[in-house]
Amino acid sequence: MITLMSRALLLLCLLSAPSMAVIETYEFSDAALEQRYQVLTAELRCPKCQNQNIADSNAPIAQDLRKRLYQQLQEGASDDEILEYMVARYGEFVLYRPRFSGATAILWLAPILLLLAGAVVVLMTLRSRQQPTAAAAQTLSAAESQRLQSLLDDSESES
């Protein structure tokens, strides 16, 4: 009984899967255009479902953007023109790799700055370890050895 039910469930799952993945297909006159379409749909971010690119997203807005992208590619627009068009409407947000500008400078530079900061910390740590402070601390000065001796003498006399 249980196996029958699980089989039925499995069958249901199989049946429902294709209906989930309705993503339209476009015919391209040229393989290079199709290649650019693939790259651009992966680079453009869906404004509605924010952690997906428009290639993955099934939101109506992503469909519209794909359609517009296809039209623009067929009309012979360059990649820069298309990205410019999208940014003019949806802002820098729509690019998964935002262009370098005053607003995005910290985004692009932060990894380099953090790496440099890390390198500085490592260098400083290494340098402080190399200094022969440890060896110097092991030899006692004349005053220190005198005090040590007196302490030892004290403890002997107590016992």
């Binding site: 404004p47 509605k48 109506p60 807005i61 519209d64 953007l65 517009r68 409407r89 802002g91």
Partner: peptide, 12 residues
């Protein structure tokens, strides 16, 4: 067709 919407940057 959502053309004006696209020009306005509407996403919902």
């Amino acid at each position: 067709e959502g053309e004006l919407g696209l020009d306005l940057g509407v996403y919902g």
